[in-house]
Design a protein around this nucleic acid. Structure first.
Lengths: 242, 242
DNA sequence: GAACAGGTGTGATGGCCGTCACATCCCCTT
DNA sequence: AAGGGGATGTGACGGCCATCACACCTGTTC
């Protein structure tokens, strides 16, 4: 089914249709030409580890298509998901800018295309084009904001059900390109396992299972494979305090 | 006692003795001259609110002396400390770069000097001098790293005692300019109340009190006013897993 | 010195959720 | 069709810690 990844490969950044939607790629022509010269495009299967937490930085990745999971792990093996990166994001930036080890392990969640730029090329690219610096700053602020929102979720929520409700609602915000059937309710695509959801909200798999079961029993949520449906958004919103 | 703040005011950035130690201020002469022109220096008493979470950004502050507390609050009034900013840091940067509301409330913890730069001046300053962009990126990576370490603390720790031990150890890392007496042990200055410590690690004041009492009873810690002393660093380290 | 406010120590109680254990289901491979 | 591995559902139990309540202790103000 996903043989040959079933992906349309974007070879040329100058002709990329998504350029304007992608935060980092919306650059002046001059910069794009340079980018085109120094980037190395690859397609990675699901589950590829792009960066390993603790490794010294080799460079950055610009995610063209697909999504990737940023996570960090404790000495005990417990791990927590920092965020899910979307197409257009720059990965490994914190490490590259400060020349310190990668903060997170980055794993592709789907077959993904990414452009790799080596540390040296990236630094030169950054110095040559002021616009690139601005894009870098914007990506970093995005990282910060995601991190702060995660901190709020972990530190200010009262209960696990609340955190899960918050997560579901955040997923419900970005519109999903799923044929919206008559049965009212907001469809969302969930490609995370319960284990991963647990890592996202800082709890255990069992608790996630129980909470989701509870939401279903209350008629707030319907689960059909990877497409879920939020039936009672108001009820979920009533749970969250932030 | 603290009348007239007892502070030496740094009027001229070009002649500032701390310039090289301060992340943001170590700029080329040209940029410093411009900075000197657009900045507004003020001294704020302890407890001043420099930014309010949710407000639209008016500009940034460069913290010259003193320390400031960045925190975020839930609708219920529960709040959590994101980090403590040290001299040389730029505050309100995330908001200024992305032109979105301040992510945190920033409160001075001591009488502090800060240079304010308005949003417009800052953006022009940023565009004019590439070095400034680099400094901004470095400050933002610092913010990210602090946030990630907070996430690790909140999400990956097993217990509150572990988090508090971790916090004490992190304080023990930066050397404190306190006359180190013969009684071996690492002296640290703690200007946070137990309530604030609780907000830092995401727990309650009572639990902090109990845990600190426990540490004292075990002979790991000594508290004398605002100067504490870590007597058994190894024991604290054995508690933390990350 | 009395009054007061903010910070701290400590007991009792109860509920949330982590942990362990196992059953079940679904999808893929052979 | 059989088998296997990953994902999920669910029960029992217990401990950590939030919550409430109050005492104490310090420094400040009048």
């Amino acid at each position: 089914m996903t043989a040959a990844y079933n992906l349309h490969i974007i070879e040329n950044c100058l002709k990329c249709d998504f350029r304007e939607d992608h935060l980092f790629c919306n650059l002046p022509r001059e910069a794009l030409i340079k980018l085109q010269a120094i980037k190395a495009t690859s397609v990675y299967p699901k589950g590829t580890l792009l960066c390993l937490e603790g490794q010294s930085p080799r460079g950055i990745y610009v995610l063209c298509t697909g999504r990737a999971k940023l996570s960090t792990t404790s000495a005990e093996g417990k791990s927590i998901i920092l965020r899910i990166a979307e197409p257009g994001e720059v990965l490994g930036l914190t490490a590259a800018v400060s020349n310190t080890p990668y903060e997170a392990t980055i794993e592709t969640m789907e077959p993904s295309q990414a452009n790799f730029i080596s540390q040296g090329d990236f630094v030169r690219f950054l110095q040559e084009f002021p616009d690139v610096g601005l894009k870098v700053a914007q990506q970093l602020t995005h990282n910060c904001k995601c991190a702060y929102s995660e901190i709020r979720s972990l530190g200010l929520s009262n209960s696990v059900p609340e955190k899960i409700a918050k997560l579901l609602l955040s997923w419900a915000q970005n519109p999903v390109n799923i044929p919206r059937k008559i049965d009212q309710g907001i469809p969302i695509r969930v490609t995370l396992t319960q284990e991963e959801i647990a890592q996202f909200v800082g709890t255990t798999r069992e608790t996630v299972s129980r909470v989701l079961g509870d939401f279903r029993k209350k008629g707030w949520l319907k689960v059909r494979g990877a497409t879920w449906c939020i039936l009672d958004k108001a009820a979920l919103e009533k749970m969250v305090t932030t």
